[in-house]
Amino acid sequence: MALPQDIRPLNSELADSITRSAEIPWIESRPGQAWTKILWVGQESGRWAVLLKWKKGYVAPPHKHLSAAFAFVLSGRLKVRNNVYGPGDFLHETNGMVHGATEALEDTEYLFFCDGPVLFFDKDSFTGYRGWEQILQMQQEAQAKQAAE
């Protein structure tokens, strides 16, 4: 039986995107403490997905989510606000969520999906901004470095 309408995509170039994370290099974001694998950057939507690896004791600075964010802990333990999250725990941080430092209580790896940018700050000023453009720039710089080696 034929479908009642044609459901073929209008864009014939649409395809599944497969990321083989084992082939993606770790990017050291804080020497000896924190690394990032960039899994996907959605330039059209501003979304991005990364795998994060933090050594025990690493502390991410206070920040505000300027969009929703999602995390899934693969190994280790993270302290976020007054909660501790471990393997298998899923976090949803709403658009506008502000919180203090996030600490790795053990060596930790987790998936992080973000619908947009994150704004970092200290008590006096803004200290950083990470959105899809910064993630894409990190990826391009790591690829150029790898090609030069």
Rank of each mutant, 00 (worst) to 15 (best):
K37G: 02
I38K: 00
W40S: 03
W40T: 00
V41K: 00
V41P: 00
G42V: 02
G42D: 01
Q43V: 03
E44W: 03
E44R: 08
E44H: 06
S45F: 01
G46L: 00
G46D: 01
R47H: 09
W48V: 09
A49V: 03
A49C: 05
K55Q: 13
K56L: 01
G57L: 03
Y58S: 05
V59K: 14
V59D: 04
V59T: 13
H65W: 00
L66G: 00
S67N: 04
F70M: 05
A71D: 03
F72D: 03
V73F: 06
V73E: 06
G76V: 10
G86Q: 09
G86H: 07
G88E: 03
G88T: 11
F90M: 13
H92C: 10
T94Q: 12
T94D: 14
N95S: 12
G96R: 03
M97P: 00
V98E: 10
T102E: 08
T102D: 04
A104E: 12
L105Q: 14
E106F: 09
D107E: 11
T108P: 02
E109N: 12
Y110A: 11
L111R: 07
F112M: 12
F113L: 12
C114H: 05
D115R: 08
D115T: 06
P117W: 02
L119G: 05
F120Q: 06
F120D: 08
F121D: 08
D122E: 04
K123C: 12
S125E: 05
S125I: 00
G128Y: 09
G128D: 08
G128L: 05
Y129F: 15
R130H: 10
R130V: 15
G131L: 14
E133C: 00
E133Q: 11
E133M: 07
E133I: 03
E133S: 03
I135C: 05
L136S: 10
Q137R: 11
Q137T: 13
Q139Y: 01
A144V: 04
K145T: 10
K145R: 11
K145Y: 07
K145E: 11
